[in-house]
Design a protein around this nucleic acid. Structure first.
Lengths: 103, 103
DNA sequence: CGGGATCCTTACTGATACTG
DNA sequence: CAGTATCAGTAAGGATCCCG
């Protein structure tokens, strides 16, 4: 029971899963790309959430020395262990939508 | 991507997953039992979250005509489709804790 | 026992502007 | 481009009391 909470603490917030999905799908993804992928998120939130994901070792941030700067985010090995869960959540979301809308 | 959000909308909030875990584990569970299972939750939150779970057809509420009243909550068939996810989340939570604490 | 009503505090979030 | 700073509103959450 405690363990589930631990997971949810890490994944809490409106955007974390969506952000992870975006990075996961593209393997590597830049800040502005994620900003575009995740509909409705503001740059402030994205930056905040990414920071938290980094702290929890789920994503890796690497600054490319270009002009202007670009920053790449990718899942860590640990982050990649979430893929199964994300896939399940996606599938479940689709089913759930059917269930609820269709009444 | 949208689909993941749909799932998270339903499961959002600090407690939903923990509540579902509790009910899921015991099959049927009373209000006060869940209140005790889910460490830290207040009755207000529990009641609110249960209501939302009910609206989303994940749990079933049944009032037993005893004195005083007891109320049973159980997962709906639809709610039970979340078990896999909950199990994964639990397992992942344990692994994650090891990963983060052990550094 | 299973909540609802109220009050109050804090966390989350968005919009906008600004910087290296 | 990839953020940070500021301001300000909303919503989430907790504590306590109340009721059938």
């Amino acid at each position: 029971m405690r363990a589930v909470q631990d997971s949810m603490d890490v994944l809490s917030g409106k955007w974390k899963i969506a952000i992870l999905s975006s990075i996961c799908y593209y393997n590597k993804r830049r800040f502005s790309d994620i900003l575009h992928d995740v509909e409705g998120i503001s740059n402030k939130m994205l930056s905040k959430e990414l920071k938290e994901l980094e702290i929890n070792k789920l994503v890796n941030r690497s600054v490319m020395d270009t002009q202007p700067i670009t920053v790449q985010y990718e899942l860590t090995e640990h982050g990649r262990t979430l893929q199964t869960i994300i896939n399940h959540l996606t599938a479940w979301g689709i089913e759930h939508r059917k269930k609820i809308i269709g009444e």
